[in-house]
Structures are given as structure tokens and as C-alpha cells.
């Protein structure tokens, strides 16, 4: 277990991956979640399962300030409470109907989620901006080996062709890790493209190491 994986907050997406009025699927170690942003820009996360018939809420849609399940249109507020059941439009949904709200926060262009509200704030890399994310079918040890990265406060650091890259790594399901790349804010567009390509090469290398025990 490395410190990235044991952070109280899990990095699950870039802020730009979830524009207002959208929902995406993501994963915590406790299970799948739906991460969504209201029309007015408020970010929320909850268990990826409608309490009615078990449909994944990440397949649903955001209207106004609520998330709707795609199956029967049940509407949920950011606190997980059900606000509307279309089959019974005049019924006030019982307060027992909940869709497992999680804690969601944004810091430095990264979306962080936790099961319960942690005491501390999510990690913030002063002077860095997120470039992209990627899923690697390998464990964190293989990613470390492939990148030859060094530990730096709550993340990994590596220098590629003079560009300073920070990596946030979180476990998805024991077989895949989710990686977010951050670069210094003043990184040139050319260096951004180069870092993105480096990430692809790193992914292939990590997956080879993980599958075949190949070493660098």
C-alpha cells in the first residue's frame, strides 16, 4: 500500500470531464459511483445504483439540480434524497429512499470523492494543472516501475524530456489503476502533447510489466 492509495480522498476524474448537466461513472474502493454536476455547477457523487430497481445512475441524466435514473426517471438531490417519482407525480417520496450520497470536492481541476467526509482537504498541487487521465490495466507497483517515478507529497513525480510531471494513482478494482497527469501551469502546448504521448508509452510498459513480470 502506497500513500497515494491510502489518501482519504480518491481522485476520480478531471473537473473538465464533468461539465454542468452531465453524469459519469467512476469507482471508489467501496464500489462504483456516479459523479454528476448540476446545471448551476454544483458537483455531487453517489453510489451508482438506483434504490428502486438497481439501475446504474451513471446511465441517467441531469436536469436542473437533480440526477434522474434512466429507467423510471426517479429524481435525486445532491444529498441522495429522492425528490420525485414520475409514476406517482403527486406522491412525496418517503425519506427512506436514498441513493447513497458520497462526499465530492474539487481541488486544482481534479474531482475527489470519499465515502465519509474526511478531516483533511484533498491534495492540492500548487502551480500544477491536470492534463489528462488514463486507465492502466496494471497495479501501482508496475506503474512505479514503468515510470521510475519518485514519491512526492501524495503523488508521484517524474521528469520527461525536461517536463515536470506529477501523477495521481488510485486503484480501480485490483486489476486496473486510474492515473491523472498534472503538469506545471506554464507548460507549453508542445510539451503537453509530448507528456500525453509519454503517458501512453508508460501505460503499455506498465501493462507489460504487470502481465509478464518484465523488468526495466
Amino acid at each position: 500500500m502506497t500513500h497515494t492509495l491510502s489518501l482519504p480522498w480518491t481522485p476520480v476524474a478531471l473537473s473538465s470531464d464533468v461539465p454542468p448537466g452531465t453524469v459519469i461513472p467512476a469507482k471508489l474502493s467501496s464500489g462504483p459511483i456516479a459523479v454528476w454536476r448540476t446545471q448551476s455547477g454544483h458537483l455531487s457523487a453517489n453510489g451508482d445504483r438506483c434504490p428502486h430497481r438497481g439501475m446504474r445512475l451513471s446511465h441517467g441524466f441531469v436536469r436542473g439540480e437533480t440526477l434522474s435514473c434512466i429507467y423510471h426517471g426517479w429524481r435525486f438531490a445532491d444529498d441522495g434524497s429522492c425528490t420525485h417519482i414520475p409514476a406517482h407525480p403527486n406522491l412525496t417520496p418517503p425519506s427512506a429512499i436514498k441513493c447513497n450520497p458520497r462526499q465530492a470536492k474539487e481541488s486544482g481541476g481534479v474531482i475527489w470523492v470519499a465515502d465519509e467526509l474526511p478531516d483533511e482537504e484533498p491534495v492540492f498541487f500548487e502551480g500544477y494543472k491536470p492534463l489528462r487521465s488514463l486507465v492502466v490495466a496494471a497495479d501501482e507497483t508496475s506503474v512505479r516501475e514503468a515510470t521510475q517515478a519518485t514519491d512526492v507529497d501524495s503523488g508521484l513525480a517524474v521528469n520527461h524530456a525536461g517536463t515536470d510531471i506529477r501523477l495521481l494513482v488510485s486503484d480501480l478494482d485490483g486489476e486496473q489503476v486510474f492515473v491523472i497527469l498534472l503538469l506545471a501551469e506554464n507548460t507549453s502546448p508542445e510539451a503537453c502533447v509530448s507528456a500525453s504521448r509519454w503517458a501512453e508509452v508508460m501505460r503499455q510498459k506498465a501493462e507489460r510489466i504487470c502481465n509478464h513480470g518484465e523488468t526495466t
Partner: peptide, 24 residues
């Protein structure tokens, strides 16, 4: 089918509590 392949759990829960029905 797009619904059926995305329900959790995959199997139909027969005991109450897991899913919440209404009159409909």
C-alpha cells in the same frame, strides 16, 4: 437491453430490502 445489462445486482433480488417498489 441497455437497462437489463446495467442493473445491480445482476440477479433478481427476491427478498425485500434490496430494492424499493411503489404501487406502480
Amino acid at each position: 437491453r441497455s437497462i437489463l445489462e446495467n442493473q445491480i445486482p445482476t440477479r433478481l433480488p427476491l427478498d425485500p430490502g434490496m430494492e424499493m417498489p411503489t404501487r406502480a
